[in-house]
Each structure stands twice: as C-alpha cells, then as structure tokens.
Design a protein around this nucleic acid. Structure first.
Lengths: 112, 112
DNA sequence: TTGACATATATAAGAATACTATATATAATA
DNA sequence: TATTATATATAGTATTCTTATATATGTCAA
C-alpha cells in the first residue's frame, strides 16, 4: 500500500459529505465530480463509494431516492440531511485541528 | 469509529518516521514523545506502535538494537535508515500534496 | 448489428490497518 | 506488599480499502 493510499484512508466520508453539501447527486456523478474537482487526484472507485454511501445513509447523514434517468436507466440520488450537515461541520473542524497538529508534530526540531 | 480516528488512519508510519528522523528512540519513548509533541492529541497505543515498528523495520526503513536500560530492563532502540529518510522525505511531499488537494476539494463553491 | 466503451449500482473475497484486550516482565513508589 | 509506571509484544475483532465480479442500460463506431 502506497503512502498516498495510506493518507487517503478515512477521507472518503468527508469527501462525500462535502461534495453533497451543495448539490444532490447520484453515485456515479459523485465519482466523476470528485475526480474533476481534484484534477484526477482522488480516484474514487465504485467499490469504495457505494458501501460508503450506504453506510452514511444508514447513519442518517444522507438520504436517497431513485429517479428516472435517460431511457430505462435509474439513478439513486443522494442528498445530505441536517444531521449530515452537522456532521460535516464537525468533521471540517476536526480536520483542521488534525492537520494543524500533525504538521506541528511532523515539524522536525532541527529543520531537517 | 470517530471522525478523528478516521482521519488519523494512515498517519502512524509518517509520525514514527518523523519522530525518529532526529533521535534514536525506543518504543515506549516514542509513544510518550508523540503525546508530548502533540500536547496529548496523538495518543499512540502499544498495540498500534509495536506492529508498526516491526513493519517499518521489515521494510528496511528502521533498524533496531537492544540496549540495557536501568537494572535488568531491556530497551529496543529504533533508528531511521537512509531508506527510511528517503521514504520520509517522499511521504512529506505526498502529505503536502494530499492536504492541499483535499482542502481544495473540500472547499465548497458557495462558502458553506 | 455487433462489439467496445461508458454509464450506473452493487456485492464478494482478500488484504491491510486499527482497536480492545491480554500477556509477560521489571522498576518505582506508597 | 500492592499499585502504578515502564517496556515489549501478540491475539482477536472490527473496519476499511482493494481487486474482482455481477447485472443492466446507453452510445458510438466499424
């Protein structure tokens, strides 16, 4: 497992909540949008996304509804709940504390 | 699992390599030093630290040697290898890219 | 019209990592 | 002598990530 894959661990729910905070989207759209916004850096896969969406919905942070797409295609649209917004706000705060503390802790004493 | 625990995932090897980049230390000392530097934020546990140390040593990023402590006590001192220094430098770069990209991706379009 | 690729959602199996609990032993202190 | 701190380590469990697979539809080119 690469360092990047290590670092990315745990960021999935945060990214999903964040991307849904302004728009209602379906899963595949979330994957594409995430890649677009990060210029290809975050390559979300289906096997990572869908279980995460189900988990977030089970926790009440998202809600979903099926809608008709083009032709016979169905899309499951996810939207953030109030509980999800609260969790996102809390996550953002925790995230800022985390990176600040990590950077402080990582900073070597001798400028290495 | 809390958000913080989620975010912390993957940071363990980075923290260990970083803390060993300036000093040779034994495991218990690493735990204490990590808590001290992060003002109690990173509470490394033994079950998290020792397997990580073994893993890093197996990968050749650390090397260890037993030394006598006070009385009959033994301490296993870990020091970083050149390979470890290279990995640490690479990790730091990846880490900076990661947080920059994540923050950019997290930034909502409408100032939410 | 058929084959390839993209869209769309989802689960299974295996690997990696984290957490809780436990084991062993020594040193210091009350 | 009992408790707490120091010191290293593993077992079992839970969670998450990765790779692979399943199913179905839409689009476009050969």
């Amino acid at each position: 497992m690469t360092n990047l894959q290590q670092l990315r661990k745990g960021s999935t729910p945060l990214l999903i909540l964040s991307i849904l905070s302004t728009d209602k989207m379906y899963g595949y759209q979330i994957m594409r949008e995430l890649e677009r916004r990060s210029a290809g850096y975050f390559t979300m896969t289906a096997a990572l996304l869908y279980p995460a969406l189900h988990h977030l919905e089970k926790d009440g942070l998202l809600k979903s509804e099926w809608q008709a797409g083009p032709g016979r295609r169905r899309r499951k649209y996810y939207s953030i709940t109030q509980k999800g917004r609260n969790a996102l706000a809390a996550s953002r705060t925790e995230w800022r504390t985390f990176i600040a503390t990590l950077q402080k802790t990582l900073k070597p004493a001798n400028g290495d």
